[in-house]
Amino acid sequence: MMSLAEGFGPTVSIRPARVEDRDALGALKLRSSLAWGDHVEALLAMPGAREVPAAHLPYVAIAELAGEIVGFVTVLPGDDAARAELEDLFIAPEAWRKGIGTRLVAEAERRAKTLGAQTLEVVAGERARPFYETSGFRFAASVQTDLASAVRLEKDLC
């Protein structure tokens, strides 16, 4: 477990996901997605908005604060060995703007390198794009998601 204390009273730690975390991760994913108030009806109707696939669990890192899950990131191997995909990054709304997302992006980069990737990719909506660009990601392409137009961003890991 890597300890992360910057900006927090209690220590934030990062750990691998466990099977028993799956329901809590799904609930956090939905709660975080709904917090902006965008696409509420569509999100509530999408089963994928409230679940983390079991096959993804080996690729999930969890941020905990005082024993509570406050965020997670999923990094999947890409279609080619040189790329990895930052699939999910969700932070509990009450923990936004406390550095947890930045720490989870750093963990995502570390995990992507462990997978042998030289580039980390992410699809980001309008609200998330500035965060990723501040984290060093650059525009690669415009894309369409199930909910809205978005961008594919990438970051070199070399």
Score class of each variant (00 low, 15 high):
Pro93Ser: 06
Val60Lys: 04
Glu20Tyr: 00
Leu57Cys: 06
Leu153Glu: 01
Ala106Cys: 04
Trp36Thr: 05
Leu76Ser: 05
His56Pro: 01
Ser149Thr: 13
Tyr59Ala: 02
Ala63Tyr: 12
Asp146Ile: 00
Pro47Ile: 01
Ser142Pro: 00
Lys98Pro: 08
Ala150Arg: 02
Asp80Ile: 15
Leu34Cys: 08
Pro130Cys: 05
Glu64Ile: 01
Thr102Ile: 09
Glu133Gly: 03
Val151Gln: 03
Ala27Leu: 08
Glu154Ile: 04
Cys158Asn: 15
Val73Asn: 03
Leu157Ser: 03
Phe8Ser: 12
Leu65Cys: 09
Tyr132Ser: 10
Ala42Pro: 06
Arg152Tyr: 00
Ala140Arg: 07
Glu6Gln: 15
Ala63Phe: 14
Leu76Ile: 09
Leu104Asn: 05
Glu107Ser: 00
Leu153His: 01
Glu51Ser: 13
Trp36Leu: 05
Asp79Met: 13
Ala124Cys: 00
Glu107Val: 04
Pro47Arg: 07
Pro77His: 14
Asp21Glu: 02
Ala140Glu: 08
Ala124Asn: 00
Thr11Asn: 05
Val60Arg: 04
Glu51Asp: 13
Cys158Trp: 11
Pro130Lys: 07
Val70Phe: 11
Ala128Lys: 04
Ala49Ile: 08
Pro130Tyr: 03
Met1Ser: 03
Leu76Asp: 06
Lys29Trp: 11
Phe131Ala: 10
Gly26Cys: 13
Gly101Pro: 12
Ala54Asp: 13
Tyr132Leu: 02
Arg138Lys: 13
Asp88Met: 15
Ala95Met: 12
Arg138Cys: 15
Glu51Val: 09
Leu157Asp: 07
Leu120Val: 01
Val105Gly: 05
Ile91Arg: 14
Ser32Lys: 12
Gly99Arg: 11
Glu20His: 04
Cys158Val: 10
Ser142Ile: 04
Arg83Phe: 09
Ala42His: 12
